[in-house]
Design a protein around this nucleic acid. Sequence first.
DNA 1: GTACTCGTCATTTTT
DNA 2: TGACGAGTAC
Length: 720
Amino acid sequence: MTPNAFLEHLNPEQLAAVTLPRQSALILAGAGSGKTRVLTTRIAYLIQTGQVSPAGVLAVTFTNKAAKEMLTRITGMLPINPRGMWVGTFHGLCNRLLRAHHREANLPVLFQILDSQDQLSAIKRLMKLLNIDDEKYPPKQVSYFINNAKEQGLRANDVEALDETGMRYRDLYAAYEQQCQREGVVDFAELLLRSYELLNRNEPLRLHYQARFKYILVDEFQDTSRFQYEWLKLMAGKDNVVFAVGDDDQSIYAFRGAHAGNMQTFLREFAVTSVIKLEQNYRSQGNILDAANMLIGHNSERLGKNLWTAEGAGEPIRLYAASSDFDEAQFIVDEIRALVGEGVAPSHIALLYRSNAQSRVLEHALFSASIPYRVYGGLRFFERQEVKHALAYLRLIANPEDDTALLRVINFPARGIGARTVEQIQEAAREQGVTLWQAACKRGGKADTGKGVPAFVMLIEAMRRETTGLNLAEQVEHLLHASGLVAHYQASKTEADRIENLEELVNAATAFLNEYDGERTEEMPDALTAFLTHAALEAGDNQAASGMEAVQLMTVHAAKGLEFHSVFISGLEEGLCPHENSMFEHDGLEEERRLMYVAITRARRRLYLSFAQSRMLHGQMRYGIASRFLNEIPEKLLKTINAPQRAVDASPAWEEPRTQRTESESGQSFRVGQNVMHPKFGNGVIVHCRGRGADAEVEVNFRQGGTKRLALQYAKLSPV
DNA sequence: GTACTCGTCATTTTT
DNA sequence: TGACGAGTAC
C-alpha cells in the first residue's frame, strides 16, 4: 500500500482535517459528512506517517458501538495490533485506568461496577438501613443528587448544604460513598470522578499518561459533559493536542449532561486556530438538506454550518395532515406498502417519533397490515432480570462482600429467607460494621435443611469451590443450574422464555472469552471480573435476535447516527414535537429543533412529515395543531398530500358529531383552523367545532395553556 | 411467598 | 390507556 492510499477519496476539507499538523483542532462535521471516516483516517494517517505510535493514541467515543466501529475501521486500514491504542468510551477508558492503578485509586483489585439499576437499589437499601423516609427523599432524587454532584467533581463534603433537605442529601451521599467503598463497587459517575482525582492528585502518574498520549481524539464532542471536558483537559495537559469532532446542531442530549458549550470553551482554552467545517453531505438529496438547513437556521446559538450535496434536489418532502393518530398510522402503512412495492427494502424504511408512547398506534397498524417491523428501545440484554440474577451469582463468586448482589439473590430462587430474616442480617451487619456476607456467615442455624441462611452460605461457597478451574462459560453454565435459576424458570408457566436468555448468557460468556483471551491485558487479570465489567459497561443489544427484513421504529434520539432510504417523522404537533415540557427548559426549544434537524437528516431520498389533529394520549383525546417546525420549512420543498376522506374521526356517541364549522347564537361563525383570541387564554387555533346556536362549542388549542373546550355562548372569542 | 388490586404516572437515554 | 410498583389478602 502506498503511504497515502487511504487519503485518496477524501474531499479537500476532509483531507485537510486528516492531515492537519500537530495542533488542537475542532472539526465541525455536519450530518452525513463522513465524520467517522475522518476520525479513523486521521488516526491511521498519524500512525502510518510515524507521527505517533499506536500506544500514543487516545480516542474517546460515546457508545461502545462507535468505539468498536472505529477500531474495526482502523485495523482495516493498517496492519497493526490495536491493543496499544486506547479507544473507548469515557467510562471504558476510566475503567481501564482504574484497573491498572487500583491501588493508587484506593480500590480493590476486583472492584465491580454498578449500573444505574444497581445504584438505585443500593441507595434504597441504604435508606432503609438508615430509616430514612423514602417519600420525603425519593431514592431517584437521591441518585440524581449524587450523580449530579459527582458530575461537578464534588465529594460529599464539598457539597454546600443550604437547608435541612440539602444536608440530608449530602449526608446520604456520604453514607452511600462509604457503603460503595466498603463493598468495593463503583457507579458510572464514580468511574469518571475517581480517575480524575487519581490523575489530578498523582503527579507522576499524570505526567506518565500525558507523556504517552500525544494525540487525543474525541468523537461526538458536542455530547461531552462539563466534567468529561475537564477530564480531557487534565489528560491533555499543556503539551498534547486534542482533535475534537462534533456537530453543535446535533446536540440532543443536554438532558443527560451534554454541554455543547464545551465547543466554544475548547476553542478558547486550547487556542484552536483550525476550525474545519465538513459541509458536503453524502447522504441526503437536495430538498431534504434544504429543509434541514432552513429549519436549523432558526436556532440562534450556532457555530454555523450549511450542508450541501453534489446530488440533485430529489423528490419533494411529503407532508400529510392526518385527522387522527389512527389515520396517520394508516397513511404510513399505505405508503410503506407502496414503497416496498417499488422495491425499497423494509429495513431501509424508518418510522421516527419523539416519544416511545407514540409507537403503539404505529405498531398496531403495521401489525394489522402484516408488515414486519422492529421496535428499538426497551430492555437491553444485560438489564433483563433473569440475566441480572445470574450475574449476581457470578458477582458473589468473584466477591461475596458485594451486598447488592447478595440481596438480589439471597432469596431468589426462593429458599425460605424472608424479609424479616434479611432485615436481621442487615441489622447485624450494621451493628458490627461488616458486610452482609460476613453477617450471614456468622448467623447460626441448621445447614442441613437445604433452606435458610446457612444453606445459602454453603451454596455460594460450594459454587466458588466447584467453579475454580473452570473457564468462564463453564462457570456460568454451572451456576445457572447450581443456583436453581434454571429449575425455577422451567417450573414457571409464565416465565419459561427467560431460560433462552440464560442460555444466551452462556453464549455471551463464550464469545467474550474468545475475544478476551486474544487480548488479555495487564489491567484485567481475571476473566470473570472482565466479563462482569463488560456486562455493566455495555448493556448489550436491545433485542435478542432479529436481522429479519423489517421496518424500523425508533425515537429520534435512537436514530442519531443512522440513515435510511425513506424516513417517516410522525406526530409533528405542538406539544409533542416540540415537546411541551421542553418549553420550561433552558434552551429547550432550540434542542427540540435540533432533534427535528437530526430526524430530517436521517433520510437519504424520501422524507415524510405528518401530524394528527387528534391523538389518544394518556387515555385522553388530545387535539393538536401542526408543529411550528413545519412552518419553518419552506413551502416550495413540501408536497402536501391531501387526506382522503377516511372515516370521520370518532367522537364518543354521546357527543354532538364534530363539524368543520359552527355558528353562535349571535350569528358569529367559526371554523376549524381559524385563529382566535380569548381575553384570558390569548391566541389559539380552533381544532374542533360541535353543535350550533346556543349549544355551539369549539375546542381551541391555545399557544399558552393547551386545549380548552369553550361554549360560544359564554366565551368571549373573537376572530384574529 | 404469591397473586391480586389499587394508585400513580406518563419525553428523550448511554455508561 | 396501560405499565409498573407498593401494598394486601390468602
